[in-house]
Design a binder for these strands. Structure first.
Lengths: 180, 180
DNA sequence: GTAGTCATGTAAGACGTTACATGATTCT
DNA sequence: AGAATCATGTAACGTCTTACATGACTAC
């Protein structure tokens, strides 16, 4: 149930509709906490039931009506409690590693092809991270210098991680060549 | 459905019971593809129905009877097809990063405490990886030099990854100190 | 005696993905 | 004419986790 807290975290900055929240996910936490709109709408219903948010229907002409959510005092307390609780290490389900571990029945070319595809996808991902860094999507929301620093720290994590993967993959390709 | 292929991969090395498979998961892929026994038994039932494995009941005295599974030709074909298919980048759901992104409402001490706990858990994890490297659990199963290399490559991935995380976390702690 | 290993399973619930469904407005 | 944006939702399905359930044997 971290989706719940990510949503509460955004609502703590300002009241938002489900649609707005989805956009904020895509513009920021997308890569380390993806969420679909169905998930978001369901979770909003749930936390509304728990009294962590209130809902206000905004009638619009030209665009569809929307439901704007606001965090309650109870929601803030709940969020704060979660934010100060240490979490367990993330579990990564890494298909490529499963493949590499079982790959002795493949040819070198086949394994290298898997690794090269991985490298290519990582480069795409890294570019997205660097674009985010440039555009500073997040700066629009960040209210303090410290908050900007925190978001930047989060971004750096992704860049570091994928650079480490890149290094690993190229070394693996090189190492494989001894089995020609 | 990668669990299915991880299981087929193990069965490709030798016939095994569900219990054996669970032990092999824990001794090798544990950190990048965890699985519980309920998941494994259900998946075995499923792939038995698909004709990818055959089942033989081994009656024992002293220990409970067991069901030993063997991969079929169809299973081997299916496995091979999956092994040569490029997978999408793994999605990591990283709670700590969600917390850090929303952490501006916390004090420096509170954030640093989160990061320190993270560092501590990573050190535990790294130790497990290094033990695996020493004990070479996998060497017992590896039939060729190349297979040993592949398993080692997989292990290295984890070590690289967590070392990158360690570096990131210590830098984050340092960076935070400018907001005293 | 009590904890651990061997060995299997079921059931409920939490969480996530994909597809289906609608409909006005605006931009190209 | 077609695509994108705004805006919400439901339903089915797939996957994963946790708890419940049993029972003999072995080692301390």
């Amino acid at each position: 149930m971290s989706l719940k807290y990510a949503i509460l975290g955004f609502l703590e900055m300002s009241p938002l509709s489900g649609y707005d929240i989805k956009k904020m996910f895509d513009a920021s936490v997308q890569f380390y906490w993806p969420a679909t709109h169905s998930q978001i709408y369901r979770t909003l219903d749930q936390i509304l039931g728990e009294g962590l948010v209130t809902q206000e229907i905004v009638y619009q002409t030209g665009s569809p009506n929307k439901k704007v959510y606001q965090i309650t005092e109870e929601g803030k307390r709940d969020l704060r409690a979660w934010l100060t609780t240490s979490q367990e290490l993330p579990t990564i389900r890494h298909k490529l590693l499963v493949q590499v571990g079982l790959a002795d029945q493949l040819s070198n070319e086949e394994i290298i092809s898997l690794l090269r595809d991985y490298v290519a996808e990582i480069n795409v991902r890294l570019k997205k991270y660097r674009d985010q860094e440039q555009m500073s999507v997040v700066s629009n929301y960040a209210r303090t210098e410290r908050e900007r620093f925190l978001w930047h720290t989060v971004l750096l994590n992704g860049i570091n991680l994928y650079e480490a993967e890149l290094k690993w993959a190229t070394e693996a390709i090189q190492g494989l060549q001894q089995f020609e």
